[in-house]
């Protein structure tokens, strides 16, 4: 474990807690892409199946359980409890265009053609594009509430910090995983324009307005 990964995991945890809390407190999921949340729930459930087969550490197990539980709870709030506030009209990204390539790529490019490894690889590829429906929705509505942009900043930062973690581990432990690294770079790159807007606007108290 290293400082980059600890801060990355905490940033990730913060992001999903911010989102769950926002929906729960405002009793509304306006501006939130339910499709992205479904993809994230899928990412965690397919990646963390190894919860039942391998024990890495208490921290690892606890975090995996939290990520699965919070992502499913968020989907429940969006599609069940507060579904009257779900913005169908703006959450229109075709997620099958993300799922199909992730499945195909996982079957073609992986470390090991076993069930758990293919699922892990699918999860890594899917996570790199899972935020697209949310970013698409923000671009369609032309703006995002500041709490949503804090969520996106924390979520985008987590994988950026993981890239530093991978550099650290390659340098210090001589291990690396190209699939995770390439997907992580793609994932972080998707946030770049958002990061720019967040830093130049939201941090100056302005609303996040995307050029429509």
């Amino acid at each position: 474990m290293n400082i980059f990964r600890i801060i990355g995991d905490l940033s990730h945890l913060l992001a999903i807690i911010i989102l769950l809390r926002k929906i729960w407190k405002t009793r509304s999921c306006a501006g939130i892409s339910g499709k992205s949340q479904i993809l994230f729930a899928l990412v965690y459930t397919t990646r963390y199946l190894d919860l039942v087969t391998t024990y890495v550490s208490l921290y690892n197990t606890v975090m995996k359980i939290i990520f699965i539980a919070v992502s499913i709870a968020t989907c429940y709030l969006i599609y069940m409890k507060f579904k009257a506030t779900y913005d169908h009209n703006h959450d229109t990204f075709r997620i099958e265009f993300l799922l199909a390539p992730a499945v195909i790529l996982a079957l073609l490019i992986n470390h090991d053609f076993t069930f758990l490894e293919i699922l892990w690889t699918f999860s890594i590829y899917l996570e790199s594009v899972a935020i697209l429906p949310q970013l698409f929705m923000v671009s369609k509505t032309g703006e995002a509430e500041s709490i949503t942009s804090h969520y996106l900043f924390a979520l985008g930062s987590y994988r950026a910090l993981y890239i530093l973690n991978w550099i650290y581990r390659y340098h210090n432990e001589e291990i690396y995983d190209l699939i995770a690294i390439v997907a992580g770079i793609v994932q972080t790159a998707l946030y770049c324009d958002f990061f720019y807007l967040y830093i130049t606007k939201v941090l100056r108290g302005k609303k996040l307005q995307l050029p429509a």
């Binding site: 995991d9 890495v56 470390h111 890594i124 690396y176 995983d177 995770a180």
Partner: peptide, 10 residues
């Protein structure tokens, strides 16, 4: 080795 990494990462 490459793929021992993710077994201990989230």
């Amino acid at each position: 080795g490459t793929n021992t990494l993710h077994k201990d990462e989230l």
